[in-house]
């Protein structure tokens, strides 16, 4: 008891510093969460949360009866899984390659060029994509035409669109993703490389047996975070890149919530879907973390 008081007496300034960040989280992160109640109400715009009628789980029953919801859920999983397969390894490969570059200046230059797409908003990327991949006038199809290949409907056929969607994702995010891996790579003990080359390991061998194991914890950590997010999907990318002809694949939970919530003003349903998404997200995150702990002895939570 005495030691605690002494501890507080000595360190109270540190705790005082916490007040502002804590208040921020309470006011802006936890405060608005009372809105979750909307999911259990027949929400009336003008009566608000306090005046609307309570309906228990009726809203959820309605949601689980909507075919659009299952489609959105399926697409969310599908797009995120494919993205995980394609976009997750891309920065690792890129980082390994960048690491092998000898010229310092060229390396810096290459890195900067690779980062840039990350800073473009999806709206701009979508505009570029529509121009580049257009069926008749897009540069890609014009080039294909030169080789005698018929135009590919990159934007309007759903399978071709899937490829476009993933490719654009890699283009946008791969460069940015290398930052963390490059930082991790610099942490690998250089004596290991020397030892490896003395033992006769070539470049590829060193990449495989020294660099990769060196950044394994980083890879696992990022993978866990990714898996935790698999039920969540950003709004802008599918919304901007998608269109009516590929709606079978491009309608995901976030766009579904936007449509039912903002456009149709069915706030109860939108909130219920959002809540469902959050709960599944947490479950997946905990699951991934538990598995990671088993495999590598270190989780993130």
């Amino acid at each position: 008891m005495k030691s605690l008081r002494l501890y507080l007496y000595r360190n109270w300034q540190l705790y005082a510093l916490l007040i502002l960040p804590l208040a921020f989280f309470l006011v802006f992160k936890y405060g608005p969460m009372y809105g979750i109640l909307i999911a259990f109400q027949d929400y009336n715009l003008f009566k608000g949360v306090t005046g609307s009628e309570w309906v228990g789980l009726d809203v959820f029953r309605e949601v689980f009866g909507m075919s659009g919801f299952y489609e959105a859920l399926r697409n969310t999983f599908m797009l995120n899984l494919l993205d995980l397969l394609v976009s997750f390894p891309a920065p690792i490969v890129l980082a390994l390659m960048l690491n092998e570059l000898a010229g310092r200046r060229f390396k810096k230059f290459a890195q900067t060029v690779l980062y840039l797409p990350h800073f473009l908003s999806w709206v701009i990327i979508g505009g570029i994509m529509f121009q580049v991949f257009a069926t008749k006038t897009g540069i890609v199809n014009l080039l294909l035409g030169r080789f005698g290949i018929d135009p590919v409907p990159f934007l309007t056929d759903k399978y071709a669109w899937l490829v476009t969607y993933l490719a654009v994702g890699v283009w946008q995010s791969a460069g940015w993703g290398t930052i963390i891996y490059l930082a991790a790579i610099t942490g690998v003990n250089s004596e290991l490389y020397e030892a490896a080359s003395v033992d006769g390991a070539g470049r590829l061998r060193r990449m495989w047996s020294v660099t990769l194991p060196g950044i394994r914890p980083t890879i696992v950590m990022l993978l866990i975070l990714k898996i935790g997010e698999i039920v969540q999907i950003g709004f802008d990318r599918p919304y901007v890149l998608g269109n009516v002809s590929v709606r079978d694949f491009s309608e995901v939970i976030s766009t579904f919530v936007y449509k039912t919530g903002i456009q149709t003003a069915q706030y109860s349903i939108a909130t219920a879907v959002g809540l469902f998404q959050a709960v599944v997200g947490i479950v997946l995150l905990l699951l991934a973390n538990a598995i990671a702990k088993k495999i590598t002895d270190n989780g993130v939570l």
Binding site: I38, G261, G274, A278
Partner: peptide
Amino acid sequence: MRGKGLRFTLAV
């Protein structure tokens, strides 16, 4: 997490 963002915006 659009829903939460929306609620936040509404609250503000």
